[in-house]
């Protein structure tokens, strides 16, 4: 395969992929091996498979929606550049999510984004809004502006947690990552993640009661 031009090898992989029965898709390891040999099509398939979850990780760390896609693209660029060094000791997804979390920290550091920790009082309208959300099973109001306002209020409440605790909580509760995955992403022991998650939840609830419960 060494003497075959890249584009021929890539199309060979593409043919092989399409030639397989629909049920037997190449797994991540096969695709990684092909990408390590320089087959761009294989990497493209990896991007297609993992883009949603990478966006979820990045979306769990970053606040501004407009930043999320830019950083997610950067994550895949970095993965492409360093895929040759990936030794397959962990799952490709774990390695990719780690890149995503690090890329987000770098982005926040470069942009010098500080956690929102202002103690300004919530308006009566905001209190009513968030209470209504908590007491119902809705996903944050019917229209996008209501959802955006709710997100802003909760973001202000989360501002009292450390950045890492905030990220853990959002990844677990909002993005549906397992405790084990979060531990691998943040290089933390599973039990540590559980305990920190639990304490972060308690702190958030206390902040809510202090700032929202006090109004009602």
């Amino acid at each position: 395969m060494d003497n075959v031009p890249k584009y021929v090898a890539a199309s060979a992989t593409a043919v092989a992929m399409t030639a397989r029965p629909r049920t037997a898709k190449p797994d991540d390891r096969e695709l990684v091996r092909a990408a390590q040999k320089g087959e761009v099509v294989a990497f493209e398939e990896l991007v297609r498979r993992h883009q949603q979850r990478v966006m979820a990780v990045v979306g769990g760390v970053l606040r501004r929606r407009e930043d999320i896609e830019d950083v997610a693209q950067q994550v895949f660029m970095k993965a492409y550049v360093s895929i040759g060094r990936f030794d397959m000791r962990s799952a490709f997804s774990t390695w990719l999510y780690k890149i995503a979390v690090n890329e987000c920290w770098d982005y926040l550091r470069k942009k010098k984004v500080r956690p929102l920790s202002y103690e300004a009082d919530l308006s009566e309208e905001q209190v009513r809004h968030v209470e209504q959300f908590v007491s119902t099973d809705s996903h944050g109001g019917g229209n996008p502006s209501d959802r955006a306002e709710l997100r802003e209020i909760v973001e202000r409440l989360l501002g009292e947690l450390s950045e890492e605790d905030r990220v853990m909580l959002v990844l677990k509760e909002a993005q549906g990552f397992a405790v084990e995955e979060i531990g691998r992403m943040l290089n933390l022991n599973v039990n540590t993640v559980k305990v920190r998650l639990f304490r972060a939840r308690r702190k958030l609830a206390k902040t809510y009661r202090r700032r929202v419960g006090a109004h009602s």
């Binding site: 883009q51 949603q52 966006m55 979820a56 990045v58 979306g59 769990g60 929606r65 999320i68 896609e69 997610a72 968030v130 959300f133 908590v134 996903h139 944050g140 959802r147 709710l150 997100r151 909760v154 409440l157 989360l158 909580l169 959002v170 509760e173 909002a174 993005q175 549906g176 972060a200 939840r201 308690r202 958030l204 609830a205 809510y208």
Partner: peptide, 14 residues
């Protein structure tokens, strides 16, 4: 708190 954080659960569509 799980309920509160669920406000961010809206999937970010690539």
């Amino acid at each position: 708190s799980a309920r509160l954080v669920a406000v961010f659960s809206e999937a970010v569509d690539p």
